[in-house]
């Protein structure tokens, strides 16, 4: 008589993110401890531990989990990806690049420590990211660790992040930037590191080649999605809603998706990217893929 009302467990995205981000923050704090020489480590920690949603490291952990790996296999890589993301922000903010004084509401690294230390803190984070994966990953074969390191290097080098930055710099003020060039920039500037995060998790977690490639595609779709949504928010939200200056792209005369295809088509494009991304996950255990699906939806539907 007692019918068990077994409800499908609802995935609680918010507490999942909070729990994972807390673990990532602890791991980062331990990895980049304050040591000699104090100044550069202090500068590294200033930007690395400044908050942020930790989307990249959580993607890495979630991908590892999805293919059956454990946290100790992917946590060093997850931290490495965040270190590299932080490095790119520090270097982006430099006077010779975007020349920003504020980042996440705090003075930028070079404003606090000087340009010379900021360049070195970025370099040190970049170097340490690789050292950390090489030295601290446990329970993974050397062959997979080497493969992961190669993937990460490629995703941020001149075939990845750096390529995107260069083409972006070269495109400023150009009137005829087409959709292809725009996509190149975003696939390299934003999507490459997200791809690296996901693919590293999959490789280190022991995923087979087929799974790794499915997750790579998933990451590319959400990487592009991330940027399309960013562009839409820039024109549809106020500065207050965004927590940063709205309409910045228009003022900077930057080419964006709304500019090239209009707002409605951009929104449709975003929906399609989200669907395409989630399609890649259909072959996996639905309980295990819940975090990645929720992350994709979060990226698609975020309001700031």
């Amino acid at each position: 008589e007692t019918i068990e009302t077994e409800e499908k467990p609802v995935f609680d995205f918010k507490s999942y993110m909070i729990e994972k981000a807390t673990r990532v923050n602890k791991a980062l704090d331990d990895a980049v401890s304050l040591r000699e020489p104090l100044k550069v480590h202090d500068a590294m920690r200033y930007s690395l531990l400044a908050g942020g949603k930790r989307v990249r490291p959580v993607l890495c952990l979630a991908a590892c989990d999805l293919v059956g790996g454990t946290e100790s296999m992917s946590m060093p890589a997850a931290c490495a990806v965040e270190m590299i993301h932080t490095m790119s922000l520090i270097h982006d903010d430099l006077p010779c690049m975007d020349n920003d004084d504020l980042r996440r509401g705090k003075p930028t690294n070079h404003k606090v420590y000087g340009e010379d230390v900021a360049v070195l803190a970025g370099d040190a984070l970049l170097a340490f990211a690789f050292e950390h994966i090489a030295v601290s990953t446990s329970g993974v074969s050397p062959a997979r660790i080497v493969r992961a390191i190669g993937e990460l290097a490629k995703s941020i080098g001149s075939e990845g992040l750096v390529a995107g930055q260069v083409v972006d710099i070269n495109s400023e003020g150009l009137s005829d930037v087409g959709i292809e060039r725009l996509e190149f920039i975003h696939l390299h500037k934003t999507a490459a590191l997200l791809e690296g995060a996901v693919v590293l998790g999959a490789i280190l977690g022991g995923g087979c080649d087929e799974d790794v490639e499915k997750l790579r595609k998933f990451a590319r779709y959400i990487g592009l999605l991330f940027q399309v949504v960013d562009d839409i928010l820039d024109v549809t939200k106020s500065s207050q809603e965004l927590g940063k200056t709205a309409g910045k792209d228009l003022v900077a005369d930057k080419v964006t998706y709304p500019k090239l295809m209009g707002i409605q088509k951009s929104k449709d494009f975003a929906e399609k990217l989200n669907r395409d991304a989630q399609d890649q996950l259909s072959g996996f255990d639905s309980r295990k893929s819940a975090p990645l699906i929720a992350l994709a939806n979060y990226i698609a539907h975020r309001q700031n």
Partner: peptide, 22 residues
């Protein structure tokens, strides 16, 4: 470009050459 080129050359090194860049 110099910052980016330096950043990238750091990476080309790959697994065997990490940890001493700065």
């Amino acid at each position: 470009m110099a910052i980016l080129a330096g950043q990238f050359l750091d990476l080309e090194g790959g697994p065997n050459a990490v940890g001493f860049i700065q």
